[in-house]
Simulated assay, not measured.
Amino acid sequence: MRTPGVDHLVVATSALETGVPSLTDRLGVGPSGPGRHERFGTHNALWNLDDGAYLELIAIDPEAAAPGRPRWFGLDRFAGPTRLVHWVLRRADLRAPFVPEHGATSRLARDDLRWSLTTPVDGSFPVDGSGVWPSLIAWDGAHPSSGLGHDGLALRRLVLSTPSADALRARLVEAGLTGHLGSRVTVTPGPVGLRAELSTPGGPVVL
């Protein structure tokens, strides 16, 4: 599980109670969860993907205390329909020289899970604020996907569009994602955007 790769996709929603049935209808498969992040005042639901990756649907937890800091993944400013907003790149560790450019490293825990994640202190997305450049994560021991069922969902391709395509591609190579580039992860020059192409029990779905 420590091999560099796509760790998870981040899908934001205004409310988990409406986002879960909406995404379940699109995927044809229900999630595991919810789980809570006390430090950031959020909660989530998870869907297992192939190759040790998962999809996270995340929202502000209305029952949580205010975190006293901006929430991650731009959730304080999120509005509109449930949608893919970001992705997280798994690494063996977060000691690479470029890591601080992706945000301060936070050590986090929930139940038997322990991980470190880069999180900009202002709650924005890393590097350019677009969500196309990944957050970085390193797991200590168990990974969430090991506790999720296998329901026929798979990430076929993650397409990242940005005017800084060459710089992003070089960073992903530097981060160790070489084996996924061109097959599972595609970086293209153009307007900022993310697209995840999934296979589901009901056929292809694009987020």
Rank of each mutant, 00 (worst) to 15 (best):
Ser161Leu: 04
Gly123Thr: 07
Glu101Leu: 14
Leu177Gly: 15
Ala104Ser: 13
Leu198Trp: 09
Leu160Tyr: 05
Thr188Pro: 01
Arg184Leu: 11
Val132Lys: 00
Ala154Trp: 02
Thr200Arg: 09
Val99Glu: 06
Val187Gln: 07
Trp115Asn: 01
Ala142Leu: 12
Leu172Thr: 06
Ala196Asp: 05
Val132Asn: 01
Ser116Ile: 04
Leu148Cys: 06
Val187Arg: 03
Asp151Ala: 15
Gly103Trp: 01
Ala104Val: 07
Trp139Ala: 04
Gly176Asp: 07
Gly193Phe: 10
Val192Gly: 07
Arg114Trp: 05
Ala142Cys: 13
Arg110Tyr: 11
Arg95Ser: 09
Arg95His: 08
Leu172Asn: 06
Arg156Lys: 14
Val127Trp: 03
Glu101Lys: 13
Asp122Ala: 00
Arg114Glu: 13
Asp128Trp: 01
Gly141Arg: 12
Arg157Asn: 07
Glu101Thr: 09
Pro191Gln: 14
Pro201Arg: 12
Thr200Asn: 12
Pro189Asp: 02
Ala104Lys: 01
Ser183Gln: 09
Gly141Trp: 14
Arg114His: 13
Pro189Asn: 01
Val185Gly: 01
Ser164His: 15
Asp128Ala: 11
His102Arg: 12
Pro120Glu: 10
Ser135Phe: 09
Gly179Cys: 11
Thr118Glu: 04
Pro163Thr: 07
Asp166Val: 01
Pro189Gln: 05
Phe98Trp: 05
Gly141Asn: 11
Pro97Tyr: 02
Val173Met: 03
Ile137Gly: 07
Glu197Ile: 12
His143Glu: 12
Gly179Thr: 06
Val127Cys: 10
Ala138Val: 10
Ser145Glu: 04
Leu155Phe: 03
Gly182Asp: 04
Ile137Phe: 13
Pro97Arg: 12
Leu108Glu: 10
Arg184Ser: 09
Ala138Ile: 11
Ser164Met: 09
Thr188Ser: 08
Gly179Ser: 14
Gly152Gln: 06
Gly147His: 14
Val121Ser: 14
Ala175Trp: 11
Val187Phe: 08
Asp151Leu: 14
Ala167Asp: 07
Ala165Val: 04
Pro120Ile: 09
Pro97Gln: 06
Ser130Phe: 08
Arg171Leu: 02
Gly131Phe: 00
Gly176Met: 07
Gly147Ser: 14
Leu108Asp: 10
Leu155Asn: 01
Arg107Gln: 01
Ala196Asn: 11
Gly182Met: 02
Ser183Trp: 03
Arg169Pro: 00
Gly147Lys: 11
Ala165Asp: 10
Asp140Tyr: 00
Gly182Ala: 06
Leu153Ile: 06
Asp112Ser: 15
Thr188Tyr: 03
Arg184Phe: 09
Ser135Arg: 02
Leu172Cys: 11
Pro134Ser: 03
